[in-house]
Simulated scan of single mutants.
Amino acid sequence: MRASIALDDPARRAWAYLSRVVEPPCHELAALVGCVGPIEAADRVRRGLVDDDLARRTEARREIDHVADDLELLARRGGRLITPDDDEWPVLAFRAFGGALARAKPRTGPPLVLWALGPARLDEVAQRAAAVVGTRAATAYGEYIAADLAAGLTGHDVAVVSGGAYGIDGAAHRGALESDGITAAVLAGGLDIPYPAGHSALLHRIGQRGLLFTEYPPGVRPARHRFLTRNRLVAAVAGAAVVVEAGLRSGAANTAAWARALGRVVAAVPGPVTSSSSSGCHALLRHGAELVTRAEDVVEFVGRMGELADDQPRPGTPLDRLTDVQRQVYEALPGRGAATIDEIAVSSGLAPAQVLGPLSLLEVAGLVTGSDGRWRIIRTGPDQAAAQGSAARLV
């Protein structure tokens, strides 16, 4: 069942109320809902019939009820409320919050409910996704790499998850969209408050073609602590977190820490050693993060079992296509000067009759030349591309 907006559904109204009554995540509220269900939990919170810890956390907001307005706004925008009762809830992804490392972190736990907009389903996104994150103050190098990674990932049917921010986040979202792929942005405020404002058009495109989601109800403005809280969800719904550029202390590093705590793969893209924008990536690599330079590297971490990256192409030279005997003869030639057939035979360990044929083929390839019975290596002459093409015809 896909989550929908039913303005008169008591359970959905209860979820919407509980979403606003406390700053997430709240273990005490989640435990109450798990025990008595959302409708009873909402009633107890409204009347203050909860334990002291939860009473303190809900005291400031328990009398605020914007449920009708919130759900009407969501319905007008074509959005939906995703709750743990819905099939779209990513059960396996959020189960990672129950791990020992995740429980040891402060302000941990899955969201209580999610406000979402867009055609992509969250449960399907979470099955095959990678987070691509990094600094807002990205360099041209970082933005290029982020967009290229995102485009490559979507080409392998991997959804790209990020936070919608300036810099690396925005480049990743744009790279995915421009490749007709799926991208999801996790927001640190309400769906009705595009942030940053300069990304309003980008966020609108994501909501039209991918997925926007947040645990904050409409009207809630982003704040620093909400970005840090949001980062755990970026990490949770992705199989790997790839940091493209980041400082030593950054939101991207925080996302990477959450990914590690949730048992996700942490990867980083190396940058110039002189660039402060890559210092956080280099620190992650020193502490065990996976080094990635292309989308195929990431696919190995989030793809299906046995789905490995293709071998990375290596620069070729004319010598790469030589047979063993041809290479043996070529390497028997002196680095400087020339040698006779007999001298080459002694150096190569081959009979003189076995040397002449390979030498002739090497001459055709433009790698050696013979004159007056003496042979030498060509250091300058035919261009490399022509030589490589000729060498390829030897085999």
Rank of each mutant, 00 (worst) to 15 (best):
residue 12 R to Q: 15
residue 327 R to D: 07
residue 197 A to H: 03
residue 222 P to I: 01
residue 217 P to N: 01
residue 195 Y to T: 05
residue 52 D to C: 01
residue 219 G to E: 00
residue 25 P to E: 11
residue 99 G to R: 14
residue 97 F to Q: 05
residue 9 D to S: 15
residue 322 L to C: 11
residue 152 G to N: 09
residue 375 W to R: 05
residue 354 Q to M: 13
residue 373 G to I: 05
residue 215 E to N: 01
residue 135 T to G: 05
residue 386 A to K: 02
residue 290 E to M: 12
residue 381 G to F: 05
residue 306 G to Q: 06
residue 348 S to R: 05
residue 19 S to M: 11
residue 296 E to S: 15
residue 330 Y to L: 15
residue 203 L to F: 03
residue 392 A to G: 03
residue 127 Q to K: 10
residue 348 S to N: 08
residue 368 V to E: 08
residue 94 F to T: 02
residue 5 I to V: 15
residue 394 L to V: 03
residue 276 S to G: 10
residue 166 Y to R: 12
residue 70 D to Y: 02
residue 41 A to N: 12
residue 226 R to G: 00
residue 351 A to E: 15
residue 78 G to S: 08
residue 284 L to D: 07
residue 232 R to K: 04
residue 130 A to F: 06
residue 10 P to V: 12
residue 104 A to K: 07
residue 62 R to H: 09
residue 140 A to R: 14
residue 218 P to I: 02
residue 119 P to M: 06
residue 313 P to E: 12
residue 3 A to N: 13
residue 81 L to W: 04
residue 175 G to M: 08
residue 286 R to P: 04
residue 102 A to S: 13
residue 70 D to S: 09
residue 327 R to F: 09
residue 94 F to S: 03
residue 362 L to V: 08
residue 179 S to V: 00
residue 116 A to H: 01
residue 337 G to S: 11
residue 107 R to I: 02
residue 391 A to N: 03
residue 7 L to T: 14
residue 227 F to W: 04
residue 205 R to D: 14
residue 324 D to R: 14
residue 60 A to S: 14
residue 389 G to C: 01
residue 287 H to E: 15
residue 357 G to A: 14
residue 257 A to R: 10
residue 242 V to L: 03
residue 387 A to Y: 01
residue 185 A to K: 03
residue 6 A to R: 15
residue 216 Y to C: 00
residue 7 L to S: 11
residue 320 D to Q: 06
residue 268 A to S: 09
